[in-house]
Amino acid sequence: MRDTEVETDGPPAEGSQHAEALARRAVAREAAAWEELFELHYRSVFAFVRYRLRSAEEAEDIASQVFEVAYASAARFNYQGVPIEGWLIGIARNLCRDYIKKLGRRGIDDEFDDSLELSAPDDTAAIGLRRDLLEAMQELTGDQKEVLQLRFLLDKSVAETAMLMQRSEDAVKNLQRRALAAMQRALGGAAYTEGGGG
């Protein structure tokens, strides 16, 4: 995992300039820019949504929708030092929330279970994510879930996480500790003693 002390590749100013130029081209709906953004961020977006949904197929679909929605509303993106990845993550968060609400209205136990079965015919081909971890994630608050995803699944530094969550680095460290404690509790680990968790 990268952390705040780890140097980034290349001069920060140069990277920032490229990111800004890329964002401007994206706002102008330049196809090449969007193809580059897709290559840069699809995996991150996929990972972000993966822990909020029940299957890789759903994650693939929602992650794809993120880019489609982003492209369609590119003109509304206002680049002001906020990385475009943060915007994509925000769209992903909203799409997941809407999707889960929709499932709730339809009744997860009937239609959704059927579609899951249809999408995963071969158990041996499926990647064995730990079901307990997925379930534990569902017991966290939105912020807790997000900080764990950004820090440990997307490998973001504290500084990057702070920027994406629009919080201070100290707040991220505090949230990270509380989220890990909540995760450990949800996994059935030893109760975290007063003062440390949260």
Partner: peptide, 17 residues
């Protein structure tokens, strides 16, 4: 321990991605 579990699964999620 919780962080380690997450990182382990991050590898699997990356494969799915």
């Amino acid at each position: 321990a919780a962080a380690a579990s997450l990182k382990l699964n991050a590898t699997q999620v990356a494969q799915e991605a």
